[in-house]
Amino acid sequence: MRRKFIHHFFRLATGLCAAAACAVLGLIVWAIVKRGWPAINWRFFTEQILLVGADGGIFYNLLGTGILLVTAFCVSAPVALSLALLHGVYLPPKRRGTLALLLYILNGVPSILFGIFGMIVFVQFLGWGKSWLTGGILLGFMILPTVTIALMERISAIPRKFGEAAAALGLRESQIIRAVILPQSVGGLVTGSLLGLARAAGETAPIMFTATIFAGATMPSGIKESPVLSLPYHIFILAQDSFDPAVGSKLWGTALTLLMLVFLLSLAALPARLKLKQPAHHD
């Protein structure tokens, strides 16, 4: 009797927790869609900011966030690939745990510290001022653990027999990496990058001192003193100044745009993630 009660109690408790989590997500989405939807139209995406955010659109913010994300991908992909190969091929098994631990520590570094680090090294020491490249590099390193771990999982899921068969044909290690390991781990790179970029798209702290400004930037033409506009920083600034209802409407529109961008990135990663659970190939 008592056991049955405990069973039902825990089932109810876990169900309530799940419902609470879903409700929070639902509320956030509902609140943003409800207020942001009226602001969204074609002009909102194609025009630049007017009247200090009270009018116009977010074209250059979208462009800036796009530039930051593409740069972050270009920075993280080769480094993640090297680390994952180090983990899966070159390192002796004893050291692999250390590498994974370092990645988890990197993953735990607060994003504001990335921002401060970037400001000291790139903005001041290298004298770049605010630059899209700094932002891309910082975001790239922020998502590095996500990308690397997804790649590591994919590489360790490649059945041993492929490497053995390739070695038996006389292929060198570098040829085995190119012919066997890389083609079979592309999925991990894509999944990890999309998930990482979904996270990076909304990060404000790493870029607010280093890469992004509120208004006046268009397409960057160099590296030094070449900031971009961005979606999260736009939200950050407008939120501090949202007594004006016109500004408020643009704020929620930008928030909805960012939310859709993040959902799209996560959604794009979904098919590859579901596939990751299956063995890499037919036996």
Partner: peptide
């Protein structure tokens, strides 16, 4: 590797 290239191998599976 050069040795393995001269010696062919067929596996169980």
């Amino acid at each position: 590797n050069a040795l393995r290239a001269r010696i062919g191998m067929l596996f169980q599976q």
